[in-house]
Design a protein around this nucleic acid. Structure first.
Lengths: 141, 141
DNA sequence: GATTTACAGTTCGTATACAAAGGATATAAA
DNA sequence: TTTATATCCTTTGTATACGAACTGTAAATC
């Protein structure tokens, strides 16, 4: 629960959004730990399952991630065998990204974990609140 | 705006919360840049203005920050002259924290920046939506 | 075709985040 | 009072985040 806070700080959206995300992130992180995946790595897999063969730039745009951040995450995911990079035959600048076999075998369970995490957040609210909440958040993105 | 996203990913609260915070954070960051302060450093100052002399542990609890994270932030803020650490006479484990002179002189402007950042987020919504949004976020913390 | 410009990725530096372990000190218990 | 336990804080290691600079390649323009 929220402790006592300075002045109108608890009214500050930057603070509220940060702490709400912090909590949601921490819970999902725990769920993913057994798989040896981080939240962002999981997100990358979801992106590639949606459309494999994307480039790092496309993936970053889709998932709203900085190219430098994407670069690091992809490097670790190649190292740990979650994805594969294949050079594009027509464009020497590009590497196309594919989920690995190992990733594919866990796809259902991993997507299930995300849905579970999502449900654990939403279950606190009524259906109307859930829809409104999502709309409000989307309006900020 | 939000790009096309995999399956029901755009329905996922972890994702929505993360991206909404990312955006809010980025905007506030820009506002604070002229001051040479980061968002979290600003938050620490607000905490100490609310009650100076707090310990790192108390501050962390108040602002919902990990003790290791707090430690690093405080170290940098001492280095850059935003806060001062004073040893507690009764408890050798504790350092009490105070905003510096420099911080005090900028207090009004810095608090103003936060309020401005908050307004820029909230202005997109009706009063009713604003109140509901805050309540929903608080329910997650 | 040579030059400019645009784009893809990487690398570097700095700042969170947080788990885990360690060092110092205070308090409770035996 | 010696031992055990609890706190405070720091340190270490890993993973984001992201601005900025850099390399390499493609596309556009002259």
């Amino acid at each position: 629960m929220m402790p006592k806070l300075p002045e109108d700080l608890p009214e500050c959206m930057v603070f509220l959004l940060g702490k709400a995300y912090q909590k949601a992130h921490a819970n999902f992180k725990k769920q993913l730990k057994p798989y040896g995946l981080t939240n962002m790595q999981h997100l990358v897999l979801e992106g590639l399952w949606y459309q494999e063969g994307m480039t790092a730039a496309e993936l970053g745009k889709l998932l709203i991630m900085d190219k430098a951040t994407v670069s690091g995450i992809l490097e670790r995911m190649v190292e740990t065998g979650w994805i594969v990079k294949k050079p594009d035959p027509d464009d020497g600048r590009i590497q196309r990204l594919y989920p690995s076999e190992k990733a594919g075998q866990l796809q259902e369970r991993l997507v299930g974990e995300r849905k579970k995490a999502n449900q654990q957040i939403l279950k606190k609210f009524s259906i109307e609140e859930q829809l409104l909440f999502k709309r409000l958040l989307r309006d900020l993105i």
